[in-house]
Design a protein around this nucleic acid. Sequence first.
RNA 1: GCCCCCGUAGCCCAAUGGCAGAGGCAAACCCCUUAAAAGGGUUGAUGUGCGGGUUCGACUCCCGCCGGGGGCACCA
Length: 815
Amino acid sequence: MSEYDPQALQDKWLPIWEQKDPFRAEEGESDPRERRYMLDMFPYPSGDLHMGHGEVFALGDVVARYWFQKGYNVLHPIGWDSFGLPAENAAIKRNAHPGEWTYANIETQANSFKRYAVSFDWSRRLHTSDADYFKWNQWLFNRFFERGLAYRKGGLVNWCPNDQTVLANEQVVAGRCERCGADVVRRELTQWYFKITDYAQRLLDDMAQLEGGWPERVLTMQRNWIGRSEGADVQFVIDGRDEPVTVYTTRPDTLFGATFFVVAVDAALADEICDPSQREALEAYKREAAKLSDIERLATDKEKTGVFLGRYAINPVNGERIPVWAADYVLADYGHGAIMAVPAHDQRDLDFALKFGLPVKTVVHTGLADPGETGVATPGEGQLVNSGPLDGLTKTEAIGRIIEILEADGRGTGTVNFRLRDWLLSRQRFWGTPIPIIHCPDCGEVPVPDEQLPVTLPDLRGEALAPKGVSPLASATDWVNVECPKCGGAAQRDTDTMDTFVDSSWYFLRYCSPGYNDGPFDVEQVRKWGPIDQYVGGVEHAVLHLMYSRFFTKVLHDMGMVDFVEPFVRLMNQGQVINQGKAMSKSLGNGVDLGQQIDAFGVDAVRLTMVFAGPPEDDIDWADVSPHASQKYLARAFRVFTDVTSEPGVSFDEGDLELRRVTHRTIDEVTKLVESHKFNVAVARMMELTSAARKAIDAGKSADPAVREAAETLAIMLSLAAPYTAEEGWERLGRTGSVAIGNWPVADPALLVQDSVTCVVQVAGKVRDRLEVSPEISEGDLLALAMDSERVKPFLNGEPRKVIVRAPKLVNIVP
RNA sequence: GCCCCCGUAGCCCAAUGGCAGAGGCAAACCCCUUAAAAGGGUUGAUGUGCGGGUUCGACUCCCGCCGGGGGCACCA
């Protein structure tokens, strides 16, 4: 029987692998193999695996299985990011507990992963919703709290009215909730934050380590998100107020051109300094501003609005009195929530000035027309004018000079600012890690002592979880009311849960010692396995999970718990699986089900299709690829395995030289291609090898050792993407043991050199002849040969003007 | 508006500045077959989105357009 039957192969090998569990990472010191840590971003258990999972895990598994084949001691774990909103919504709908839905889905996905034959170490499986996992979220929170890296503050926060919870800045995309797409509104709330801003500079600086290992666009997005800028803090006295107000500017050189002053309308400062005569106007403006959604407020083409506060600020360098306005184009939570406005050299300020008839004063001569006339600000380089001591200087010189002047009399200082805000981690939802804080009327915020962790969730289900704008935990009064750990008095638990991005910020460390009980992870094991050599996942986490994980790693490094500062050495972003040019969706009716594809074509064919479709980072349009063709190819490869008639163990040395050369060239190229993640090209090379072996078999050489060599090589290389077919082929070839581990071949250099190569002879760039020459031919000999060619001679007349010889491949003669 | 990436056969995609095509899909034709399916084989660019430039030589490097995708976008 040599019929290729994918279903039969799956039925045969799956139980064998299940029993052998061949991809266990070896912790022991005695194992001499070099270690590698390969990780795919862990899934959220929202039903069964879908096409997107099919792609990521097929691609990641090529790398993992390649390392297994190369003989490394590989850690390739799997787990579930199992806290989160969808479980809660499902529980409300079905009057159930979120855990029931979650753990059922996890089982479904686990079985699908097994059938999909991903090379996981199943013994390290973890779920973030397990108490022995989230206990360590709470333990880590306590450590952050001790270090002042977890703190509570009031202020305007992003609120998703659909999900009924606050969101971190990173989770608001263009004014919408990253999860559900609802328009985010702003609310005044007291919330917990992680002080990621303390690490802004290091998050930026350490990116140097990631250069080359991470996709450039992810680094760019993180750089943009961190948003470092250099400038100066400048103090302005407000007429009639004792305390001066500080503003941040990146253009202190234009200080003499400041013609008004703007305070963010939602900053406390606006209220405080508003003159009674303008109070009513300010209140009216605030009501107007509050009506706008973030999307409207942030629209760049929106007309400037604002209101005069009836007060004046004094320019510290020239004593000019400039009017103070409140406006919504100044942000309360960036810099100091107030700016000096220089309309001549800043478009936003100019728009505002023109709208409200405020003066425009040019202080940098750029050679461009007067902004007051044209309405176009001139932010570029130029020479300072109308600026007292700065006159005649360039922009850069003036920035340096004015900072010296301001620092000399204590009215300002050179400074650095970041766009990055602290990470808001409280969530008013149920299915997450309780924040381990007890609020005591006498002692304030008291962490739950480590030995009392975990703080588990009360047993709420169904309607009790329905969003009401405060955490469902607040309604569990028995759970909420506790004794203060410090004074023993009556106190109450914090009723918010943690952002689930906390769970995923360190799970990759837990995998190194998943059952560890004395801390979040065994420091020694992390030292041995970390950092992660290859991480694979979607680009949508560029400024979310990846930024948070980098932050956590740095904090843990400062705590002495990890010895590296960057968790992911190399990052690969896969594309998406789409259909007919569009993202799959129910409304478009263009969804493709992974399970059905597997049923129709087999696991191997689906995996091979994912790998062969194109470069990993490109989207795969399922309408452009053919799992059926992949299946046909695998059947073709399979026939090669079954057609080999020599015995295992024969010496390949006696084999057909030409086929052996093809085999070894393939080994050489596929090795390089897999290492550079050009998996699609690697598969193309395997197909060529298959054809070469087929040809030899059809020419009656089925017993030739070179055919066996080609077939065995093919089985090994194919195991990266098509493990069932490879395993069966290996067995049919009479080999014992699994094909999957430790078999990667090394190309014989002697078989990589060619007897002869084709040299192209060009005359004036046009190919006129091809010569078969030795690869070692000298330039002189090659030229002589070319000049002597009967096909070349007619195009020459006399001595050539120029001759380019690139032995042994090319001669170009310019007559 | 600013920044980045990409445009190669009907389609997906290869090609250290050196013969434009490796591989696949689709198509057409041929072999096998009573027939079909399965299987095997053969066939494709007048030039790499357009226009310049550098070079002996450009898909590749530079400049300017056009088209597609992505990121940022009141961050002072």
